[in-house]
Amino acid sequence: MANSSSGEKLLDRLVRVLEAFAPDRPELTVAQIAERADLPRTTAYRLVQDCLAVGFLTRQHGTLRLGVRLWELANRASATRDLRQVAMPFLEDLNQLLRQHVQLSVLHEDEVLILERHSRPGAAINNASVASRLPVHRTSMGMVLLAFAPAPVQAGYIGRHEGLLAARHGDVRRELAEIRRRGYATFDGLIDPTTTGAAAPVLGPDGAAVAAIGVVIPRDSDSLQVVAMALMTAARGIGRALQEGAAPN
């Protein structure tokens, strides 16, 4: 893969062009891409033209968006494909039962990566969206994923982010142990002061979390225990279905 004069690989520059797009910035001009990717405008223009040619980007009303080709390739053989397919019926049931936004997530590169979301009109404020990332220490999903992570993963994360965790959660090891004891996590106002987040882990055969499912409800709701029980039931169902290798009918 050809390098730039600075020694940077072409693939690295291409990734930066694609990563310039975000949920809050789905449409960009070439100049904006160059600025957000920290690239010379001529380099950004050339890479944009290459991406347009293969469908990684598409042009719409004078701006650029991520292309459908990226979605197609990502879903063709993704490691998360089976997880999403298995979880879908359970997420739909939770969405109908709880009448709130429901999401499926995994721990990826020290962040919570949202794989799937079922929305609900009129539901509580929820900042999760598909393919977005959220801070571990500021989400119930992140904390439940961390609580049920393999010991080396948990220790490594705490070592890298102990200051953030301590500022938000105090004695984080005690808090993670309590989450493991209860089987779910729930926190008030970690992102929005008017809401409460709840999450339960989807466990693999080794007892470690392979994913989490989460719900955000109004902070003054009296249904938190019902929500937690529903999440744990659905999470166990997803875990069993994954081990059986098939989604429920």
Results as ranks from 00 to 15, higher is better:
92 E>C: 05
99 R>Y: 05
54 V>G: 12
62 G>P: 01
34 A>Y: 04
44 A>D: 00
55 G>P: 13
41 R>K: 09
82 D>A: 15
98 L>C: 09
26 P>H: 05
110 D>K: 00
83 L>G: 12
35 E>S: 13
38 D>V: 08
35 E>L: 10
116 E>D: 14
76 R>V: 10
46 R>H: 09
86 V>C: 10
42 T>E: 14
58 T>L: 15
32 Q>N: 01
91 L>R: 04
28 L>V: 03
115 L>D: 02
32 Q>A: 13
103 Q>M: 11
31 A>C: 02
85 Q>N: 15
77 A>Q: 11
36 R>Q: 10
40 P>F: 03
47 L>S: 04
53 A>V: 06
98 L>E: 04
40 P>M: 01
95 N>G: 15
107 L>P: 05
122 G>Q: 08
89 P>V: 10
107 L>N: 04
51 C>R: 01
36 R>E: 12
92 E>Y: 07
61 H>S: 14
115 L>Q: 04
30 V>I: 12
94 L>R: 11
37 A>W: 03
30 V>H: 05
68 V>T: 13
51 C>G: 04
91 L>H: 07
104 L>C: 02
51 C>A: 11
63 T>W: 00
87 A>S: 15
67 G>V: 09
62 G>D: 07
95 N>I: 02
92 E>D: 14
41 R>F: 01
104 L>Q: 04
35 E>M: 08
57 L>H: 06
95 N>F: 05
60 Q>G: 11
102 V>A: 05
114 I>G: 00
54 V>K: 07
26 P>R: 03
26 P>Q: 03
40 P>W: 00
94 L>A: 09
43 T>W: 00
31 A>S: 13
108 H>Y: 05
